[in-house]
């Protein structure tokens, strides 16, 4: 399935081809007359924390929807670890190890926190109808593993004590953490966080920063969309700035902060 032609292009262009994980080239998405994403090219390397910032309506969420095959691009290519994402369906993208969270929380509200995370294990396990009906030893072992791993993941994000509560009855901050736990339980290589700090107080934001660092040191590459500049500046090694679907600048936090275009388009307004 991996397009060799595309992989070669990626290798030729990337500075550190071995570490290249995501390679987006000329990505375009039109909604009728609206150019939500316009000729966007950028790379993400293994082990990075990259922030995507930009004003509302810049196309950040649309970018995630394209990467996770929720939307089909109008043009351009997206290659994740040698696989062309443009041809996959959403669950195949997740199976490849690219997973997302949602800007507006989308948990399974009437399931417990634990079951939400267990659902994330689906793509790494394989008991079928027969296994469910017979509950032979293999299935029981798998169920135990799912349970253990789900509990570990809940503990990892710090909400193990919420395991048996319904997702929708959790406080807002814990719901956001649960979404991250559910995404992590799919065993990703790269996680796309969509405004994880939105609606959190400063204490919770600080904890989120720590959590994201922990996620990265577990070997998961992180891309995050975020408006909270404290979070962005504290986490990101590289920042990509979008405006009107176009990348107006990318660089280290220090570079981006001083870039006149960024100040005009985004930071200026925010202050």
């Amino acid at each position: 399935m991996s397009g060799p032609a595309l992989a070669t292009t990626a290798a030729a262009a990337g500075a550190q081809p071995d570490h290249l994980l995501l390679d987006v080239r000329g990505l375009t998405k039109r909604f009728g007359g609206l150019q939500a994403i316009c000729e966007l090219s950028y790379q993400v390397f293994r082990g990075e924390i990259v922030a995507v910032i930009g004003p509302n309506g810049a196309g950040k969420t649309t970018l995630y929807n394209l990467l996770t095959a929720t939307y089909r691009p109008t043009g351009g290519t997206m290659v994740f670890d040698g696989h062309d994402l443009g041809r996959l369906s959403p669950h195949e993208v997740t199976e490849l190890g690219l997973v997302r969270t949602f800007q507006n929380i989308r948990l399974f509200p009437n399931m417990t926190a634990l079951d939400n995370v267990k659902v994330g294990r689906y793509c790494r396990t394989d008991a079928g109808l027969f296994g469910a009906l017979t509950r032979l030893r293999g299935t029981r072992r798998e169920e135990r593993e799912i349970e253990e791993q789900a509990m570990e993941t809940l503990a990892f994000v710090g909400i193990a004590h919420r395991a048996d509560e319904l997702a929708k009855s959790l406080p807002y901050g814990d719901q956001k953490l649960l979404e991250i736990a559910r995404a992590l339980s799919t065993g990703p290589r790269m996680i796309l966080l969509d405004e994880p700090a939105a609606g959190l107080n400063s204490g919770e934001s600080a904890e989120l920063v720590e959590l994201v660092r922990k996620i990265r040191s577990d070997g998961v590459t992180v891309v995050l969309i975020e408006h909270d500049m404290k979070v962005v500046m504290g986490l990101a090694e590289r920042i990509v700035v979008l405006d009107h679907g176009m990348m107006i600048c990318q660089g280290t936090p220090a570079e981006v902060r001083c870039d006149q275009r960024v100040i005009d388009a985004y930071l200026g307004k925010a202050v």
């Binding site: 959403p90 989308r106 399974f108």
Partner: peptide
Amino acid sequence: EDELAAKAMGL
């Protein structure tokens, strides 16, 4: 509960 989220979680 949420078909779109289910897909995004690998189902």
